[in-house]
């Protein structure tokens, strides 16, 4: 009987321990696992929707307006007389708006070639882990229409309105490797309705690569490079515009609450896809470098519905 009582005591002790706190926690875990195999999406692959010149894989959130003001000063190698380029500036003002979680649109006006531009950007795939169909990368598609409104070079000849138009289509494939490192590839295609000369192409292909390394929570180092690809479908036509170089930009993102400041150095003058991918003439390594900045300020226009 003695051993029996002992057995009883031991057993009841072990059972009454069943719901001690750590066990309560385990119970919680089990319940949670049962009901929510949550998919975890990668967020903030980049701090803002532009890397420097071109797009990142990021969208502005639904109902958010992003006011972007971008400057590119003159070239550094112009010397002290022009205060290393600060005497001149090329600028773009833009408004971006998030229509839904996946779709954003934007418009802009650049001083360079007096261009107007409009774009739509759609998130096709979001990088995720867990759940069904996890994806190692995010993929977005961007289409931009650009309209030059400079006066016709030769008003006497017959000029068509459509000759002012250019189009750029980009696929952005990005991966956030870690908190500190994100990389993206940007296969791009630019079409100009009117080429400058017969030997120059209307269609230009390029592959962009870009990325960021976070130096601190609110500061990151970025690089962006577009390589024009030697692809030409028309015989006797060059694959790139004469005298142009590949676009390169390096710089920093500084984030302060609702603002993102981007400071960078680039050999491109313009800030629209056709301009920096296909019309960059500066040679980065000969000092044809523009100091530039983008300022982004977001405003929440439509508040989000709380999920109930």
């Amino acid at each position: 009987m003695k051993t029996n009582m002992l057995l009883f005591l031991l057993l009841s002790l072990s059972f009454s321990k069943l719901y001690a706190q750590d066990d309560l926690m385990n119970l919680l875990e089990e319940e949670k696992d049962k009901f929510s195999k949550k998919k975890n999406f990668a967020t903030a692959t980049f701090k803002t929707t532009r890397l420097m010149n071109g797009h990142t894989v990021e969208n502005v959130a639904a109902g958010v307006l992003d006011v972007k003001i971008s400057h590119r000063f003159g070239m550094l190698n112009r010397g002290g007389y022009e205060l290393f380029g600060l005497d001149q500036a090329s600028m773009r003002m833009g408004l971006d708006y998030g229509i839904s979680k996946r779709l954003m649109i934007g418009i802009g006006r650049s001083t360079y070639q007096k261009q107007y531009d409009a774009f739509g950007k759609f998130k096709i795939i979001r990088q995720s882990s867990g759940g069904s169909w996890p994806s190692p990368v995010s993929v977005s598609a961007v289409t931009t229409v650009m309209l030059k409104t400079l006066k016709w070079e030769d008003p006497k000849r017959q000029n068509f309105y459509t000759s002012r138009l250019s189009f750029a289509h980009q696929l952005i494939i990005a991966r956030k490797f870690s908190e500190g490192l994100s990389l993206q590839l940007m296969p791009s295609f630019v079409h100009d309705n009117l080429a400058n000369t017969v030997s120059e192409p209307n269609d230009i292909f390029a592959l962009g690569i870009g990325g960021r390394i976070k130096l601190s929570k609110r500061l990151s180092f970025n690089a962006e490079y577009y390589h024009v690809l030697p692809i030409s479908f028309v015989e006797g036509e060059n694959y790139r515009i004469n005298g142009t170089k590949n676009s390169l930009a390096v710089g920093f993102d500084i984030e302060t609450g609702g603002h993102v400041f981007q400071l960078h150095f680039t050999n491109s003058t313009g800030m629209t896809e056709k301009t920096f991918i296909t019309e960059t003439t500066g040679d980065f390594f000969k000092g044809d470098i523009h100091f530039g900045f983008n300022i982004s300020r977001v405003f929440t226009i439509k508040k989000r519905k709380k999920n109930k």
Binding site: Y19, L24, M25, E29, A61, K303, R304
Partner: peptide
């Protein structure tokens, strides 16, 4: 029975008015 309680909160499930 003994008054013990535990809470587990996924921080990513906190939702704000502003996405940023």
């Amino acid at each position: 029975q003994n008054g013990e309680m535990v809470f587990a909160i996924l921080l990513k499930s906190f939702h704000f008015d502003r996405a940023l």
